[in-house]
């Protein structure tokens, strides 16, 4: 299962999805700082997350 979380902040919910067997996880948030801290945690815990800074109303969602 592929999961996308909009406004994921530090991507804690995505980490839970990866633990329960999601094949791919993408997170977007308007706040770059929160994504950066999420990425740091993900690197430490070896989660393969893709976190993209994005405003859902003003930018297209990155595909792929």
């Amino acid at each position: 299962m592929r999961v996308i979380a909009v406004g994921c902040a530090e991507a804690g919910v995505l980490a839970a999805f990866l633990l329960t067997g999601a094949s791919e996880a993408v997170g977007t948030d308007i706040k770059q700082l929160r994504l950066e801290s999420g990425q740091t945690v993900a690197l430490t815990l070896q989660f393969s997350l893709r976190l993209v800074p994005q405003d859902i109303l003003r930018q297209e969602i990155p595909s792929g």
Binding site: M1, V3, C8, I61
Partner: peptide, 25 residues
């Protein structure tokens, strides 16, 4: 699967946000 956790109430255009995500599903 897509998730909006405590996010949608902050967006000015609910319908636009939902249809953008719908096109991705």
């Amino acid at each position: 699967m897509a998730i909006f956790g405590d996010v949608i109430e902050h967006l000015e255009d609910t319908e636009l946000a939902l249809s953008r995500i719908e096109s991705l599903l």
